[in-house]
Design a protein around this nucleic acid. Structure first.
Lengths: 203, 203
DNA sequence: CGTCGGTTTGACCAGTTGGTCAAATCATAC
DNA sequence: GTATGATTTGACCAACTGGTCAAACCGACG
């Protein structure tokens, strides 16, 4: 499919443009609601040209999901067992909230996939994701056992962080409809900080 | 379209079967990913027969969303300004959590619509939903001013309740992938109770 | 039992879908 | 400048899409 330097540059540019357009369309309409024509239009390329770079609509979707899963869990991976417990968790929450603000399309792509039953990433979830969460839940339970944060169900704690922070990306239109002019991301950081401090501060 | 008693009975049965099938398909695949053929198959009726009861695919979707919006916000409406603040809010949280367990398809239908930009209910959100939330946020602020619950941003409090409780329906497959065999709804009620008690108990 | 409205459907339609392919175009190494 | 492989596209296809329609079917009421 390639060899020369120039060709690689064209490929990289076009592949990037296609993936960006595909992210727009898939995140806004789901896999079934997206069409290759629409992605091609958004990318400024012809439909057969898209199919030249990615053999099928599903291949584009898979490429996006792979990229995404790689980076989406980085903030949780970064939770440091040797750090100060409350500050580690708060830092995680704030990182997740920033991702919702800076990468809402990625969050919605993920949400669409999960809401619709995760047909394409179910295996990855119950293998890689579960392993990561199991490990971090154990860390949290260690902190609880040591009395360094208040006792709480660690898995549900993580679910609550996911749901709340991703809510600002996935349900953005609803949040803004309720809030009116106010930018949710002005007030959200203070709220999540307060919430998890009150939840986790011992005693 | 109707008049006689028998006809009405047939109509009600078929309309209900169609809406149930449509809820299955729309909630699992989004509006764009759903097909009338699939809904017809799920309902055990022919495609032209569906179109006899509902003039178009969009009409089925609209019927579902109207039914849904009517009942979806009932728990929040039930928040009683004259009740005991913490117990009122906890009762709301538990009602929402029960709805996620008992009506996950409805939750996912709503999630699909919002994630994809709420093209069909945007006006309703910024009118009816906003009005309701504004009213209830004022109630909560009153409770805070009276020192009956701890100070917190009332809008984000409501967002957090929505996101956390609906997470168990919308992201059910992810939650179960992480939790393994364990039923999320065994442990979730205790968690949300603890969370909102710690967040809202004064001092 | 016949009729009459409500109900159901097979056949059909135009437009769209994901995907193919041969031919044309392009960039660059020689 | 030309040969060569990478890139691009117009034309095309079979399958599927939402929707239509005339004809058939059905049950109950007179």
């Amino acid at each position: 499919m390639t060899a020369s330097r120039r060709a690689t540059r064209i490929q990289e540019k076009n592949r990037a443009a296609i993936l960006d357009a595909a992210l727009d369309v898939f995140s806004a309409r789901g896999f079934g609601g997206a069409t290759v024509d629409r992605i091609a239009a958004a990318a400024g390329l012809s439909k057969p040209n898209l199919l030249y770079y990615f053999g099928s609509k599903e291949a584009m979707h898979n490429a996006l999901l792979e990229d995404l899963l790689d980076t989406w869990l980085d903030p949780l991976r970064a939770l440091d067992p040797s750090g100060e417990p409350l500050e580690e968790i708060l830092a995680y929450v704030h990182r997740k909230l920033q991702m919702s603000r800076d990468y809402p399309r990625e969050s919605r792509l993920f949400a669409n996939e999960i809401v619709q039953g995760a047909p394409r990433i179910h295996a990855t979830l119950s293998r890689d994701l579960k392993a990561l969460v199991d490990a971090k839940a154990a860390v949290i339970e260690g902190w609880i056992a040591a009395g360094r944060i208040a006792p709480i169900h660690p898995y549900h704690l993580i679910f609550s962080i996911w749901s709340l922070t991703q809510h600002y990306a996935d349900f953005d239109v609803q949040v803004r409809a309720v809030l009116g002019d106010q930018d949710p991301f002005d007030s959200a950081p203070g709220f999540v900080d307060t919430l998890y401090r009150r939840l986790l501060t011992p005693n």
